Amino acid sequence: MKVAIVILNWNGRHLLEEYLPSVIAHSAHEAHIYVADNASTDDSVAFITQHFPQVTCIVNKSNGGYAKGYNDSLKGLSEDLLVLMNSDILTTKDWLKPIIQEFINDDQLGAAQPKILDLKRKTHFEYAGAAGGFLDALGYPFCRGRIFDTVEEDRGQYNDTTPIFWASGACLVVRNELFWKAGALDELFFAHQEEIDLCWRIQAEGFTIKSIGTSAVYHLGGATLEQMNPQKTFLNFRNNLILLLKNVSGLKVWIILFLRMCLDGVAALKFLFEGKSDHFFAILKAHFDFYSKLFLVIQKRRNTKKIRYYSKINTIVWTYFIRKIKHYNELF
């Protein structure tokens, strides 16, 4: 089974210098490594050409974000598996082998991720993906190993291989043919939560998503946008509304969207009272931008296959903030 590791880069020469050597050292025997450059203005491409001749450079004409950047970069690749990897990932020895083996063993496996641990605190999971993601009925994402801002210590509790609802875009492994059959990444998202949308559509095609707990990588996180950057707040709130309208089946989607608008209003006021007015306005901007794209998303909704069940729990907000349940294993 042939594998392509594709690292999307935008002005990240320092990240490539720091983390690309580990990817080469731990993955070169199993995969062909590509760096897809999103029209960087630094010397990323020249640096790769000079220092890593074994890595193939794909140069995109514009910075279309995560979604368009990957769609443009992956079009000419023929490998069986595509690994969409952030440029701030530190790999571990033999991390790729159990993932490849699981795809060989399970022909209904559509996409997967390794355990994603925090490079800044290696004993704990990393916020963006942890040990695999889920959604509650209102569309709030949470992970095995991370619910809202509570991140668990890795004590081996998620070392199993098990179905999940979404795999993290920080290190997402997907079948090449299925990636395109499911419709690739939706470029309307630009960045953030487009991997959840893709995993939703992969499952609508009859395939599963898994976390491979015998594989682990470390993620720096926040290398492109820091966790508390208002632009990240804008993208997360806007894209979650797009995600729901596009994929939730039936008339219930309108009830869910109404409830989310109310809860988003609460979140915006919380930011305002905390003195974070830039995040307050980011949420307002997210909603207005969503409304401006409403008819476009409805058109996408009409052309998107649906699945009946998508949520693992009714409301993670109530469970976390009212019932004070902070860890995934305590949910069920």
Results as ranks from 00 to 15, higher is better:
residue 286 A to E: 06
residue 256 I to H: 11
residue 243 L to I: 00
residue 229 N to P: 04
residue 262 C to N: 02
residue 262 C to W: 13
residue 238 R to K: 15
residue 278 D to F: 00
residue 283 I to G: 02
residue 222 G to Q: 05
residue 239 N to D: 10
residue 274 E to K: 13
residue 224 T to I: 06
residue 224 T to K: 00
residue 251 L to D: 13
residue 259 L to D: 07
residue 243 L to K: 06
residue 248 V to C: 02
residue 255 I to Q: 14
residue 259 L to S: 11
residue 269 L to R: 08
residue 224 T to W: 14
residue 253 V to R: 15
residue 260 R to A: 05
residue 268 A to M: 14
residue 229 N to G: 05
residue 234 F to V: 02
residue 253 V to Y: 04
residue 241 L to C: 13
residue 256 I to N: 08
residue 238 R to I: 06
residue 221 G to H: 05
residue 250 G to M: 04
residue 232 K to W: 12
residue 243 L to S: 06
residue 276 K to W: 03
residue 274 E to W: 01
residue 265 G to H: 06
residue 275 G to H: 07
residue 275 G to L: 08
residue 274 E to M: 09
residue 283 I to E: 08
residue 249 S to L: 09
residue 237 F to L: 01
residue 245 L to I: 04
residue 231 Q to S: 12
residue 255 I to R: 14
residue 255 I to H: 13
residue 225 L to I: 00
residue 285 K to E: 15
residue 256 I to A: 07
residue 286 A to H: 05
residue 270 K to F: 12
residue 280 F to A: 04
residue 229 N to H: 14
residue 266 V to L: 14
residue 245 L to P: 07
residue 268 A to Q: 08
residue 284 L to F: 14
residue 233 T to G: 07
residue 281 F to S: 03
residue 269 L to H: 09
residue 267 A to G: 00
residue 243 L to V: 01
residue 244 L to M: 15
residue 250 G to C: 09
residue 262 C to V: 15
residue 238 R to S: 09
residue 232 K to V: 09
residue 278 D to G: 00
residue 227 Q to C: 02
residue 233 T to S: 14
residue 221 G to R: 01
residue 282 A to S: 14
residue 276 K to L: 11
residue 275 G to S: 08
residue 261 M to K: 12
residue 271 F to M: 04
residue 247 N to F: 03
residue 246 K to F: 01
residue 270 K to N: 14
residue 281 F to L: 13
residue 277 S to R: 10
residue 253 V to M: 05
residue 280 F to T: 08
residue 263 L to C: 02
residue 228 M to E: 13
residue 267 A to C: 08
residue 280 F to E: 07
residue 224 T to V: 11
residue 264 D to L: 10
residue 237 F to S: 06
residue 279 H to L: 02
residue 248 V to I: 14
residue 280 F to I: 02
residue 260 R to G: 07
residue 278 D to P: 00
residue 250 G to D: 06
residue 248 V to S: 02
residue 267 A to Q: 10
residue 225 L to R: 11
residue 254 W to V: 07
residue 229 N to M: 05
residue 222 G to K: 01
residue 227 Q to I: 11
residue 238 R to T: 07
residue 255 I to N: 12
residue 250 G to S: 03
residue 231 Q to K: 12
residue 272 L to E: 03
residue 230 P to D: 11
residue 221 G to D: 09
residue 274 E to H: 11
residue 265 G to K: 00
residue 260 R to L: 13
residue 226 E to C: 01
